[in-house]
Write a protein that binds this DNA or RNA. Structure first.
Lengths: 361, 361
DNA sequence: CAGAGTAGGGGGAGCGCTTCCACAAATGGC
DNA sequence: GCCATTTGTGGAAGCGCTCCCCCTACTCTG
């Protein structure tokens, strides 16, 4: 009676606080906290009673207060850095959508939530949210944000192996070289004599490693490289580059496209030049999209397994945050999957001879 | 000397606190706070000095403390509720990806960040993050999460007009009825005599209103409705339903598909039945995907303008959070856009007679 | 029945910041 | 030169919670 009057204070802000619950339950706030968090030494009866009262009052603990006290916010940043100067290319392709989805689920399952944070955003936005850790997709060479976070002791896990000396806590990636070599071998086995590549102008690890693997393969088998580059973030540039590739005098008889939309773009370009797929041109592209199962013809795709990557990245990050040495390696390589469809199938022995048509109008 | 020793306290946690900055700058923490936040009555010299010291120490204000004190976290929730029992169907389609992207940009521009929160997640996750407001995509009829948030005084803006008596702060939506009617008229003008619909089994507003508009139109023009339903969240069911629709004895000569993948699915089905598009079958689907520009033939799509919706939703929400009466209506209808391509074009007078082929193998 | 242990629960310090307010010094008007 | 401002600065009270530590009462053991 002489001390505080919780009922007055509680109603002040509209929402019930821990004090209100304590008063209503006839216990101390310590007991309320312990009861609700499963700590302390309390008989079950007290726990139940407190929980009941809290429910009745619609009590929701203040996340901010808890975060301030415990130093843990339960928030994980999700960041994309690459793909050009676009303000925010997140979810540009199905890959990011899938990856983000898996990451969100995995985080949620362990009690964390994801905050979308473009790396291009100014620093004040970053420091305005208390992050326990961050997932960085395709960090650029010497990403200042990453260094900054690491310096502050915040764990950073990257999707895509970090270039240079970027000090990430852990990373997850595919074996892009092996994937490309596998595809090239697959195409060669299907009868390709000159395999072209549709690649990007950006310097991220994926593009770099894949292109390098291609060049390496060419050198090994003694084929002249036939490739076109374009800025991968520009949706129109892809179609143009595909066209350019097939317009070359040394036109390839098989093409691998590094980016998701390359499949339709190459298919359209092939059509314009009167090339039949797979008869005149074998096609593979890297994509997570299901549309390639029902194109005409269906197109062979390489899946980078973004769901597995998203999950793995988050698991590693949360392990690091919670300081538990999971025994999981801090550098994980996720296998890719080649989904073979008509566009890259070995030509069946020709029963009908169809004369090649010239470039269509 | 006799009071606190900030240097010791500051280094304890690794990160510099406001006290460390104050000590290093030789001022009080009040002055530091004021200088950094542009408040108080301080000469520019002091402001500069404090900012400089803060920079040198790498000072980052604690978001948690600020949130606790001010009651504003700068965090906005982004939620999807519909599309079946899938644990998390967010970004299933390009629509969500685009919408989320625009929402993120808009939020960031006003100093807010987005937190991805599936509505299916248990309550403890929701209360574990301090949200200033929430965007809900396609809220279901009597969404408990929404009611709960509103009861706590947290603004909620929905993408999709709320069904029933859902008490949202504001909403943004397309005029789905008008869009469907427009498409049906477009198809009829292109020569369609019997227009079919590929629709969903779920009860969200989009599906309901669109289907209703279709039935209404049929009644008006005296056409028997020809439609197939399928669970929109299942990627395989769509292809089957498309097939079913074209296998009917009363096969339509034009189809509108409500969902993103319907275009390729219908195209594949048409091919199986030897139907040429647009000659034998006119096709339109609702999609944000650019692949339909390069399919064979290119498919007419209805865009719901997710970027505009995402932006509008966030603007309304932040207006509500900041309590500023923007003058913007709290119920906004965003126009749709019909991108007409070959698949729904009026047949040009035939110059070449191409004999219809039988069902393709 | 003394001493030691244990179960149940409360006091209160702070997490790092913002902000109200008091106060001292400088300035100005008469 | 004296009071009324204005200007620059600091003290300190919390925001709502967690958790260390202490206190009381009760139960054992010998």
């Amino acid at each position: 009676m002489s001390r505080t009057e919780p009922s007055r204070r509680g109603s002040r802000h509209g929402r019930a606080g821990i004090r209100d619950v304590a008063a209503a339950a006839g216990v101390s706030i310590t007991t309320v906290s312990d009861a609700l968090n499963g700590k302390g030494r309390l008989p079950d009866a007290t726990r139940r009673h407190v929980r009941e009262v809290a429910d009745r009052l619609g009590y929701r603990p203040s996340a901010a207060a808890r975060t301030l006290r415990t130093g843990k916010s339960g928030l994980i940043g999700l960041t994309v850095t690459t793909y050009g100067d676009e303000p925010f290319t997140f979810t540009e392709f199905a890959y990011f959508a899938e990856m983000a989805r898996a990451a969100t689920s995995a985080a949620l399952a362990r009690g964390y939530a994801l905050v979308i944070l473009p790396a291009t955003s100014r620093h004040d936005v970053w420091s305005n949210v208390a992050l326990d850790g961050t997932v960085v997709i395709d960090p650029s060479d010497h990403d200042p944000v990453v260094s900054d976070l690491v310096r502050q002791g915040i764990p950073v896990v990257s999707d895509g192996r970090p270039a240079g000396t970027l000090p990430v806590t852990a990373w997850v990636d595919n074996d892009h070289e092996a994937a490309v070599l596998g595809i090239l071998d697959h195409l060669a086995a299907a009868g390709a004599r000159r395999i072209g590549l549709l690649t990007g102008t950006s310097t991220d690890t994926y593009t770099r490693l894949s292109t390098h693997a291609y060049l390496h393969w060419c050198e090994r088998v003694g084929q002249d490289p036939v490739y076109e580059k374009y800025p991968a973030h520009d949706p129109c540039a892809g179609a143009v580059a595909a066209d350019r590739l097939l317009a070359r005098p040394d036109r390839p008889d098989a093409v691998y496209g590094l980016f998701d939309p390359n499949g339709t773009d190459l298919l359209a370009a092939a059509r314009r030049y009167g090339l039949r797929v797979p008869d005149d041109l074998l096609l593979v592209c890297c994509s997570e999209s299901t549309v390639y199962a029902t194109t005409e013809p269906p197109i062979t795709t390489l899946s980078l397994k973004p769901r597995r990557i998203g999950t793995a990245v988050v698991q590693l990050l949360i392990d690091a945050i919670e300081g538990l040495d999971s025994g999981r390696p801090v550098e994980q390589v996720i296998p890719t999957e080649l989904i073979v469809r008509t566009s890259s199938q070995r030509r069946p022995p020709r029963t009908t001879v169809s004369p090649p048509r010239g470039p269509a109008g």
